[in-house]
């Protein structure tokens, strides 16, 4: 049953994604891959909408993915699945607050968890960059463990996309603080306008 599956997948995401909303991205990619509910490209669109609407990004993404998989009940079930482990873990931590704060094992585990979480988001980033800006895809064979690069159709590089990405990297990192400090929704809006003006989808 799809609702049970949704709840379980998002329960795992809520339990193992460490470091907030963006840390759920690699889990959502894995869910899409294993269920076929949505593609990488769909997920990118969901992330853009989640960044541009009120509410925590992680929750917005869970709701959106749930909606995509199974409509409004799916949205509710996915969100509940994602917050259930949080509620359980925090209620336990709150009960043993003092010993949790002073437990050396928590610190030690997080010494390894933080770079791993960054690595997972980095891998998700590389996968979407390949998907959006090149025709290279990483594909695992049937039942295979290792993914190999495969050339899709069309030109190797999405040149207009790469140009826009270069401009955005400069604007968000190297421009004066007045520009780099702008809310992401500004850059998302700008990119939408560029996409429409230059027919990015070729549509």
């Amino acid at each position: 049953m799809i609702y049970l599956r949704l709840f379980w997948e998002f329960f795992k995401t809520g339990l193992f994604a460490v470091g907030g909303g963006m840390a759920t991205l690699p889990f959502l990619q894995a869910i899409g891959e294993s269920t076929g509910w949505y593609t990488y490209t769909d997920l990118m669109n969901m992330l853009a909408v989640s960044e541009s609407t009120p509410g925590p990004i992680g929750i917005n993404m869970a709701t959106y993915v749930g909606f995509t998989a199974a409509g409004i009940p799916g949205a509710v079930v996915a969100t509940l699945g994602e917050i259930t482990p949080s509620i359980i873990v925090i209620l336990i931590v709150a009960a043993v607050l003092h010993s949790f704060r002073n437990n050396p094992y928590v610190d030690r585990a997080f010494y390894g968890l933080r770079p791993a979480s960054t690595g997972l988001i980095g891998a998700a980033c590389a996968a979407v960059v390949l998907e959006v800006l090149t025709s290279v895809q990483l594909v695992a064979g049937e039942g295979g463990l290792v993914k190999a690069p495969v050339l899709g159709g069309g030109s190797l590089f999405n040149v207009p996309g790469l140009l826009l990405a270069a401009v955005l990297i400069v604007l968000t990192n190297f421009a004066p603080k007045k520009i780099t400090g702008l809310h992401p929704i500004v850059f998302i809006g700008l990119s939408a306008a560029v996409g429409v003006a230059f027919g990015f989808a070729g549509a």
Binding site: M22, L25, T41, M44, N45, L47, A48, E51, I121, A124, C125, V128, V129, V132, L133, G161, L164, A165, L168, I169, T172, P184, F187, I188, L190, S191, A192, A193, V194, G195, V196, F198, F200, A201
Partner: peptide, 11 residues
């Protein structure tokens, strides 16, 4: 299609 490029940069 434009927004997807932006999301790459944001990630």
């Amino acid at each position: 299609a434009g927004i997807q490029v932006c999301v790459c940069v944001l990630i």
